[in-house]
Each structure stands twice: as structure tokens, then as C-alpha cells.
Design a protein around this nucleic acid. Sequence first.
RNA 1: GUGAGCGUAGCUCAACUGGUUAGAGCACUGGACUGUGGAUCCAGAGGUUGGGGGUUCGAGACCCCUCGCUCACCCCA
Length: 429
Amino acid sequence: MKQAIGGKKKIAAIKGTKDILPPETRKWQWVENQARELFERYGYRELRAPVFEATELFERGTGTSSDIVLKEMYTFTDKGGRSLTLRPEYTPSVVRAIIEHRLYLQPRPLRFYYIGPMFRYDKPQKGRYRQFHQIDIEVFGEKDAGIDAEIIQMAQALLTKVGVTDYRILINSVGCPRCRPPYVEKLRQAAEQVREALCPDCQRRIELNPLRLFDCKVETCRELAQEFPRITDYLCSECTEHFQQVQAYLDVFGLEYQLEPRLVRGLDYYTKTTFEFVTSALGAQDAILGGGRYDEMMKLFGGPDLCGIGFAVGLERLLSLVTYQPSEAPFIFVAYLGEPAKQAAMKLVATLREVGMECWLEYKERSLRNQLSRANKLGATWTLIIGEDEVKSGRFNLKNMASGEQQEYTSAELLAYFRDYLHSKKSPS
RNA sequence: GUGAGCGUAGCUCAACUGGUUAGAGCACUGGACUGUGGAUCCAGAGGUUGGGGGUUCGAGACCCCUCGCUCACCCCA
């Protein structure tokens, strides 16, 4: 009724989603390629899972007490009456795929990576979107602390590769099903003692998630939290030993890191090692990369007793720290005059493209001056000029737009020239 | 979900304290200029001032609602 009167309704991208436009897409492609190249070197292979899954997968995997499942999932019913959810994170999908395809029968450890969109119904702000992108890596079947250190080292190598230096590495251990529950109870009791002095948020945390008590920003809470028991003092011997080994191996790599007992992370399934890379350049959403170990998840889904560890990089957050802007490939603008020249141009352009050159040909009739002006504006590296004379003689003028120099070539010579050019670009020296 | 700030052309911004037909720069298109680009000049196109309602003789401006954006809380990548 309302919109019928006004006519056109504006259709815009959904809240919290974004179009990624050229030339910004170049930067995305570049970072994604850097990641793929790096991960492959560590033996990781891409595993692509669907963007939506049965809702139950995340309820069981991510955990029903996590905020993600509690209030951030894009859940809908399809026409067959199934409850489906756009994935809010990737790990449960990988676990599902491993079990479904019996991938655990392959030689271990299994190493996978994936780059793609995730969905969370959150209120958007800087560095936080409803559709966002993650680079995700997972390792299954390696319980040695060496792998914990290795993936942190790999994460650091990725940041270095894309030129990001402003970050700190935080690590912690959240224990296992044996030692964490008793600790949480201790923590709860300690907090209960000073309940009245804590802020309302923290008072709620005592019941909801005591581990988050350490995360409060209120000064008095922070001071009180100093006196609370720390998980690292309550880890069982296995977890303690693992945590110490992780640190020792990180030292082997020469990595600098901070122990951060407050680092609990929001997913229910973490065990032992958790870590985060944080930056000071992003405002409130300062985590660019986060991960940890989840040794119980595979069992939870009825799979084998196979431990897991992994991390996710927030691409939007990472990209906002990447300053490198890849340059566009050099290309040829083809200018022609008259119908016979147009046809010769179309034919020549097809062959040049086959050789591997980027060529632009426009079909609107313009003067040569006008075409050169456009070539200049569009940033052409060369302009190839084809007029009546050139069609007759079979020799074309190739103009270098930077120097203004111009030289004649036959079409065979042109192809040879650009073949050489492409070859020399691929293997410089 | 809670709170704050902001919405004028594709972009960056004007428009006095509420007063005529909402302007400029950049960008875009065309022309001067039909065989040689970058400059200059001229012209054109582009807006329901996010949307709806109200106050007023009169609203881009004031009030209410709504939508969107931004930032923060919460949480996380």
C-alpha cells in the first residue's frame, strides 16, 4: 500500500553486507592468493563445504551456550520443512565432512584450509559485518604441542607475507573436561565472595560464564579480578605439560607472545590451547585472527576420537591492515578508423588475447584523437592504431603511452613482441 | 538486543537565525578537435535534500516516527 504510491522502492545491500568492488577486489584476490600459496607449502589442501548446513550441526558443534548459537544465527526453514542455518563459522562443517566421507581413514594429520563467507546476525560496526569472510585452517589427528606452535607460526608467516606488522600474539590454555569444571567452580566461588562490589554485568557473568569475569572493562572489576584464581594454576598435569610444550616450541620458532589468562574465547568447544592475534589499529574489534584446540568435537558428532586444532582469520579486518595495492596488468587499447579497420582490429585483438595480452576494444565510433584520449584516461600501456592505411599495408602502429614513442609492426611481429613481453614478465632476470 | 552521532548530485562539501527555481569542485557525457593522448575552454546530464507525518504563510533546516550508515556496549573474525 505505502510503496505503491511512491513508485520505486530503493533496493540496497542488506544491513551488514557489502559489495566488494574493483579495484578493491584486486586486494582481496591478492591476499587470498598469498594465503593459499602459503598454506599449500605447509601441506594444507582446500576443502569446500556448503554455506548452509543443518541447524543442529552448529547447535551441537559451536555449542548452545555460545552467543553465536544463542542469538546470532541466520536460521530458516526450507520448503521441505528442514531447519537450516547459514554457517556462522567453519569448523563444524569440516568435522561433518570428515565423518561423512571417512576422511579420518586417510593418513594423519589431516590439514585443510578454506576461504569464504560466514554469517552472523550481529549489530554491524567497525570490523564486524553480518556477512564477513574468513580464511580458515584446521588440523585433525595431531595432538603433539608442536602443531599448536606450528599453526601459530604459520599465522604469523601469513601476516608477514601480506605486510601486516601491527599485532600482538596472545595465548592461553582453557584446560580440558577434566580440569576446567573444577576451576570454573573455584572461580565462581571467589567471585561470589565479592559479588556486591562487581558491576551488574559481572554479577550476571558469575552464573552465565565466569571465565568472562576477566574481560570486564570496569576498573574496580579489573582490580578484583586480579585476585581471582587463574586457570593456569588449576590445569591438570596433562594440560599443564601441553601448555608448557607449546610455549617451548613457540620459543623454538623465535615467536614473541604474551600469556593472557583472560583469553577464553566465545566458542564452547575449545580445549587446552587458545590464541588470538590482536591489533591496536582496528578499534574495538581488535582480533584479526583467533583459534585454538578442540579435542572433543569429533567425538561429539559420533566420529573417531580425533583431536583438532585450527584458526580463522577475519578477512575484512586483515584487509584493513594491508596497505599493499597490487597494480593492474598492462594492457593494449586498440584504436581503429573505419569499418575495414574495425574488422581487422577485432581479429587481431582475438589473437592477442589468445597469446595472453589484455586488450580493450571499443565499438563506439570516435576520432583518433578521441580514442587516444580515452586510452590515456583508461590507463592503457599501449595504443595500437589501425586505420585505412594500416589495413592496406598490413603494418600497425604501436604507441607506448608513457613515452609517446611509436613503432610499426606486422601482425606476426606484434604477436611475437607480446609473447616475448609476457615471457620476460613471468621469469624476470 | 541497548546507547550515541550522522543522512543534501557518483565522490567531497555549500545553502545566514526557517525565506524565491537547492549550489560548487572533482568525476561522467558531448563539443571546440574526422590520423595522434595528457592541457584549456564551452555545454550537458545528474536531486522527490533517506522515507513518512507534523508545526508554519513558508521546512534541506524545527518536532515525531521510520529506514539506513557510523561508532560504542555485548560478543566475536
